[in-house]
Simulated scan of single mutants.
Amino acid sequence: MRQLRVVLVGLAAIVAGLLFAPPAHAAPNFKAPYPCGQTWTYSHHSAEVRQALDFVRSDGGATAGTPVLASAGGTAYRYYEAGGAGNYVVVDHGGGWKTYYFHLASFTVAHGQGVSQGQQIGTTGSTGNSSGAHIHYEQLYNGVGQSIRINGQSLTPYPGSYHQKYLTSDNGCAGQGRYWVDTFADAPGHASPTSTTRTGTLYAGTNYVFCKAWGREIRDAQGNYNHWWLKTDLDVGPAGQWVSAYYLSRWGNDEARDNNGAVIPTC
């Protein structure tokens, strides 16, 4: 009889544990870890830890130097691991969920800083144990690697090499007031679309802009020109400055569109 009571007590404890166990926290609506409108290809290597994916750009733009964006809001923590992840950021989204971003060329957030979805946290690079620029990306729940989901859709089954599957980002799109553009060269910044006094520099690569305004013409010896100027935050110099749309990598004369082809709104 005593043994039966022990068994019954044990079963009751198990049932109670099942009934009163804390519920699993739903995952955030994760988005791709790179700017709006860009298309990247991804792969998974069997030697990778957890269920990581590696992303490289496949739409003609450069992978190295492209902004790395937070997949969801949270608190960002920055680390360095010489023989492995290199410069990397962990974003704690709460409820047990975290995302990891490895091999960054640089950080753009402070350790312990709150970030919003679509906010830049670093630039794509190849630091640590890496053979080329890419974003090593992970989603973890309570420390366990999860099958990666973007906008609620699983990316499984994972491809074993690049250029089998592709993903176009909608992270940081127009609804957040930023438009992502590629520039082919360092662009001089100015305080207004008509000013000739340089105030700083926007580095070549992928950058965000807010809006456009008509201003003085920028023209080269080959006859390429643009009158549109784009409001942005410079890499060197003050925020809220202007660069010529002449430096956009695509679209043409007197056009000002983002990487997704959307017309940048007038300020």
Results as ranks from 00 to 15, higher is better:
257 R>E: 05
254 D>G: 01
226 N>L: 07
200 G>T: 01
210 F>W: 12
258 D>H: 06
235 D>Y: 11
202 L>T: 10
245 A>M: 02
225 Y>P: 02
248 L>F: 10
247 Y>V: 08
205 G>C: 00
201 T>A: 00
213 A>I: 03
206 T>C: 08
243 V>H: 03
240 G>K: 04
228 W>T: 05
199 T>R: 10
210 F>L: 13
244 S>Q: 04
223 G>F: 06
252 G>Y: 09
237 G>E: 09
222 Q>L: 15
258 D>Y: 07
207 N>I: 11
225 Y>W: 13
240 G>H: 09
256 A>Q: 10
243 V>A: 07
225 Y>S: 10
254 D>K: 05
248 L>H: 06
216 R>G: 08
205 G>I: 01
245 A>P: 00
260 N>C: 12
228 W>N: 05
208 Y>S: 13
230 L>R: 05
234 L>E: 06
204 A>W: 01
231 K>E: 14
199 T>E: 14
217 E>P: 00
201 T>F: 02
235 D>L: 09
242 W>A: 03
198 R>W: 06
233 D>W: 11
261 G>S: 11
231 K>M: 10
247 Y>Q: 04
226 N>Y: 08
247 Y>A: 07
236 V>I: 13
238 P>E: 13
220 D>W: 09
217 E>T: 15
260 N>K: 02
210 F>A: 05
250 R>Y: 15
240 G>E: 04
208 Y>R: 06
201 T>P: 00
226 N>P: 08
233 D>M: 04
223 G>Y: 09
221 A>H: 12
251 W>S: 10
230 L>D: 03
202 L>S: 08
249 S>R: 03
204 A>D: 05
223 G>K: 07
242 W>L: 09
249 S>L: 02
223 G>S: 06
247 Y>P: 01
207 N>F: 01
250 R>A: 15
208 Y>F: 15
237 G>K: 13
200 G>L: 07
229 W>M: 07
208 Y>G: 00
237 G>A: 09
213 A>H: 11
227 H>F: 15
257 R>C: 10
203 Y>N: 02
245 A>N: 01
252 G>T: 03
230 L>Q: 04
